[in-house]
Design a binder for these strands. Structure first.
Lengths: 137, 137
DNA sequence: GTGATTGCAAATCTTTTGCACTAAA
DNA sequence: TTTAGTGCAAAAGATTTGCAATCAC
């Protein structure tokens, strides 16, 4: 684990057109060096603080939005009260555990969507999101 | 259209355990007497005001939540910035047009979801939501 | 009457923004 | 240097809540 060398994070940011600042590098490492993750701004900010990275919550918000704009993250809409960001940007779906407010990936090939109706004229499908809401029983 | 008689709205509220006040009756008629609808609190409040129903925005929020709790409405999560409520409470899916922030129903039988993975132990599927995000092209 | 409901204003929560300061190139 | 990025505090939106007044039963 933590196989991605420091310089690779910098390269990734540069490629995305983002200046590799201390804060962005630190956040990128937290996000991308530990497998697929789902974070909220608050969660990432707490984690950064605990890891000794000094970064303001505003910068965390800005950074998450910039990373999303650059295609490094994907926003997952499952909860009206909070935004989740997913480090897995390839097509896939989610389990959402309501009581815990936690997200878990469902691989794209684990779900097949058949007979999706064609979109109305003038509109094209940008993305199909499947959210399987789970509750404890 | 507008086939549902006034008393039926009252009966529906009573059945749901909600006292049929002027505000709830008025909002229920706006919601349920005109086919399947998708509304936000702000939209419903504007509509009520235009229809001459005097009701505060806070009461619209409270009423939407109460109706949802009573199973008269379903909340649709498609947008982090706003809550949408759907008068169609049977299983079905949605098109979401990003530029317009509008929702359109997809009948349940128009989509088939195959090979959905089993939920982790101790959890059960409460609901499967499919959101087809559309963009103008 | 009595308890539920409403309206208002204030509070809360998440997210964004303006601007002076700091850091990357 | 020059320009982009950061932090802070304030602002902005959506939604909820406390409480006195009002309404349904």
């Amino acid at each position: 684990m933590d196989a991605r060398p420091f310089t690779s994070t910098i390269a990734r940011l540069k490629t995305a057109g983002l200046r590799p600042t201390r804060q962005r590098i630190g956040l990128a490492r937290l996000l991308f060096d530990h497998g697929d993750r789902h974070v909220t701004a608050e969660m990432l900010h707490d984690e950064a603080t605990k890891a000794g990275l000094r970064v303001s919550l505003a910068t965390v918000y800005n950074t998450l939005n910039q990373f999303t704009g650059a295609g490094l993250l994907r926003e997952v809409v499952v909860d009206t009260t909070r935004s989740y960001f997913d480090t897995n940007v390839s097509g896939h779906h989610h389990f959402f555990v309501e009581q815990e407010a936690t997200l878990h990936d469902i691989p794209a090939d684990a779900v097949a969507i058949e007979r999706l109706p064609a979109p109305p004229a003038g509109l094209k499908v940008a993305r199909v999101d499947v959210v399987v809401r789970l509750t404890k029983n």
